[in-house]
């Protein structure tokens, strides 16, 4: 079923084909978890949010129309859930007068031991700097660089104009570039 278009699977799922919906989940689970994890910096919360994303997708299957990319609808749900999660986390942190705690994203694996430290250092710095971006800048960066959405799709997901997507993305990249340059190394 991997050669079938997303919207074809959606149409089958809308007709009650449970296996078609399962194929959709398996196809998109890693990207959704990746997005949620980098938005929340929490591995267990990311899985919960991704799970909730697919449950809500199923609940609203009958409302989906193939007038855009399927991932636009999928990441739209994931994005709203993660932003609500972050708002709740910020409220709790404000209430308890503490900074929200983030789980460390697992260290990357490298094939070459001599390169391990260097690669790990750069990747760790990148992950930290992504986490330091505001949610508004972080979401456009993730949707573009990791999920490959074009500006129009990102604008649909985030509910802002294409010009806003363009400027936020440029600012996010500039922040990452400047930070890595300040670390003193070629990247």
């Amino acid at each position: 079923m991997y050669d079938v278009d997303d919207w074809e699977l959606v149409a089958r799922a809308q007709a009650g084909d449970a296996e078609a919906f399962a194929a959709l989940v398996r196809r998109h689970q890693n990207p959704v978890i990746r997005f949620c994890q980098r938005m929340t910096r929490s591995v267990p919360d990311a899985e919960d949010l991704a799970q909730e994303t697919f449950v809500r997708l199923h609940r609203h299957l009958h409302r989906l129309r193939p007038d855009a990319k399927f991932t636009t609808a999928l990441f739209g749900i994931a994005r709203n859930l993660t932003l609500n999660f972050l708002r709740g986390q910020a409220r709790r942190a404000w209430f308890w007068r503490s900074a929200p705690e983030f789980a460390e994203i697992p260290a990357p694996k490298s094939a070459e031991p001599s390169e391990l430290l260097r690669v790990s250092e750069i990747e760790s710095a990148l992950e930290s700097e992504i986490a330091r971006l505001t949610p508004e800048h972080r979401e456009v960066l993730l949707l573009r660089e990791f999920e490959g959405l074009d500006y129009e799709a990102i604008a649909r997901v985030t509910g802002c104009r294409i010009g806003t997507v363009r400027s936020r993305l440029a600012r996010a990249r500039e922040q990452l570039r400047v930070h890595l340059e300040a670390l003193g190394g070629e990247f």
Binding site: F21, A50, P106
Partner: peptide
């Protein structure tokens, strides 16, 4: 920078993720 970002390790779902969703 873009190449570095896209090369970052991708977290994978736990094996029973799809089953739990279903």
């Amino acid at each position: 920078l873009s190449a570095r970002l896209r090369a970052l390790p991708t977290p994978e779902a736990s094996p029973d993720f799809a089953g739990r969703v279903l």
